[in-house]
Design a protein around this nucleic acid. Structure first.
Lengths: 343, 343
DNA sequence: CTGTTAGCGCTTTCAT
DNA sequence: ATGAAAGCGCTAACAG
């Protein structure tokens, strides 16, 4: 089967330098080159030197595809988020990627958009690359997504939402609870009227619902609810307050927004109309974005430590990969209400 | 998560179902399964049906690692950007990824941070996965980066900056020219004093320098220049204007910022001090971010079509991969000055 | 339309 | 400390 190289190398179509080539130049076999790279201590100093020189001379770059196929470890980790242009997810993935990179893994990142079906299809493509672990956003997935994940047998972490019964591991927080906490704040501050402005996914809606429930339970009037399908934006926040004021009979009170950018828009629109914040209109955002404490007045918001989510998710996967984790893990990292000038 | 061995007939250590397995179940050889997947038209309808059933029954997921090794095409495309939490790069990569995904490629994305050495190291790791093409941010790279790229023989596109002599292809714009154009605007508006606030990379500095050169050439006073090492932020913009006003003798005039977020900070600080914008302080940003036309007043800025960069970069690589491109390509996508209320 | 044969460039295992 | 042999799971010729 294996025809020995009869002296002269056959004309190599592919242009890549192989370990074979490096070994030939260094006067050792291909395996020794492999060893020199994966565990230098296992080859003699002299051999190592010659191999290093040969690598330098040839510009050899190991083929990780072949390595992964042979070792059954790809060194790849899948990360699936709704959108990378959303700072919430971007900063989480950034922290996740840093930790995984330190552990020797590379991130295969994809956007899944809004539907679970898109997530399922993207996941299938990713699994064909045989990742060593998977990060998913959210706790709701299609049946086939779950099945594929289970069948793959690799560690999985679901982030940015919380459940006691994750596929494998979960790192998140209780979205409805954040809304209820803001509802309490609104009631504590003595507001009678309140409104919500939502331009996010299902999780954002749950936050808004938690707010409405708690605010009315605490004696507030029925909450005016405004929802948008497009991405959160300053313009959207301005338009929302305008609509609340001009068309929906909102007079004065607290506005809870699904993101700080919407809250900032509400703030700007209020000021453009000569309304005082927080006296006439109070506003609370979500996410504690970088700009939120530098506006005038600074924006009250719900803080969640996005980087911590990314790091914790990485740890959960690493412990799974290395078999240090016995069973499922569900970690609630919680949140903090940041009361600032806007409410 | 530990999935018990499903008790397969043959003691397969590896838990993946292979084409071999699928073929056996469908009563055909492994190659036929491969064909059914890559080119269904080459297989008889009846065979195809049986194969499809077998795939369904086994939950077979093709191993792209093996496929890539055998075919010498990984279906992977490398994208290297300074930071994914910077909306500038995130939106560019998003558009790039969409186009490449449509063409059947998956993106291997990494952050390179600020140094060319980090870029080099990251690139080396990426090349070991044998990507079919590479996207790089900027036109400055280490010698070894260039050497590795040239040796790999795959299409390369450098984005977000412009040169007539790219490694392979280039899609960008002239940063200094944007600064000069804003310098002209400042002069046209009759400003005598001007300042720059920069919190970005080398390209941002080139924009600021272009502004200063042109503004003084047009008769303006020497430009006050403020530079920060940290990321651009609202707070940074506010602090910058405060410093300009309180410590550097800036009185009234135009402030050109390296990003819209800084410009927004300047705007807020000016208003907090009771200064009129644009009468007392005029401000121009860069990037035309989503919020920039919804502030009060809206921010004048330099618009660059980030999505267009991403798409054009994708096209450049695709034409290279498919051999449709003969030689290097250098595309200057230009920019537009958007004059709004802030200047 | 389908099968056979020969690798892709590595890691693993077992000798030496 | 080093090497030979045997795959990893797939694609690419080439037959038939």
């Amino acid at each position: 089967m294996h025809i020995p190289d009869g002296g002269e190398p056959k004309s190599r179509r592919g242009r890549g330098v192989t370990m074979q080539d490096v070994g030939r130049m260094a006067g050792v076999s291909q395996v020794t080159v492999s060893r020199a790279l994966s565990d230098p201590a296992k080859v003699s100093p002299d051999t190592l030197r010659r191999i290093t020189q040969a690598i330098e001379a040839t510009g050899f770059v190991p083929n990780a595809l072949a390595g992964a196929l042979a070792s059954r470890r790809s060194g790849l980790v899948t990360a699936l988020v709704p959108s990378i242009t959303n700072i919430i997810y971007a900063s989480m993935v950034q922290a996740f990627g840093l930790r995984m990179r330190d552990a020797g893994y590379q991130i295969l990142l994809s956007e899944t958009g809004l539907t679970l079906e898109a997530e399922e299809e993207t996941l299938a493509r990713h699994l064909s690359r045989r990742p060593d672990a998977v990060l998913l956003t959210g706790i709701h997935h299609t049946a086939r997504t779950r099945r594929m994940l289970l069948a793959s047998g690799i560690p999985v972490v679901e982030v940015w939402d919380f459940t006691e019964t994750p596929i494998d591991a979960c790192v998140g927080f209780d979205h409805a609870a954040t809304g209820r906490a803001v509802g309490d704040l609104a009631a504590d501050l003595g507001h009678v009227q309140a409104a919500t402005v939502c331009a996010g996914d299902e999780r954002a809606k749950r936050r808004m619902a938690g707010f409405a429930t708690q605010f009315t339970r605490r004696g507030g009037q029925a909450v005016l609810e405004l929802g948008y399908d497009d991405q959160a934006s300053l313009a959207g926040g301005r338009a929302a307050l305008a609509r609340l004021l001009d068309e929906m009979g909102f007079d004065r009170g607290l506005v809870f927004c699904s993101s700080d950018i919407l809250a900032h828009g509400v703030l700007i629109e209020a000021q453009a109309r000569g309304l005082r914040v927080p006296q006439d209109i109070a506003v609370v955002g979500f996410g504690d974005q970088e700009f939120s404490d530098a506006t005038n007045p600074p924006i009250s918001t719900v803080h969640v430590d996005r980087e911590a989510f990314g790091r914790a998710a990485a740890e959960a996967l690493l412990s799974g990969i290395e078999g240090r984790r016995d069973g499922p893990a569900a970690i609630d990292l919680g949140f903090r209400i940041l009361r600032r000038g806007s409410a």
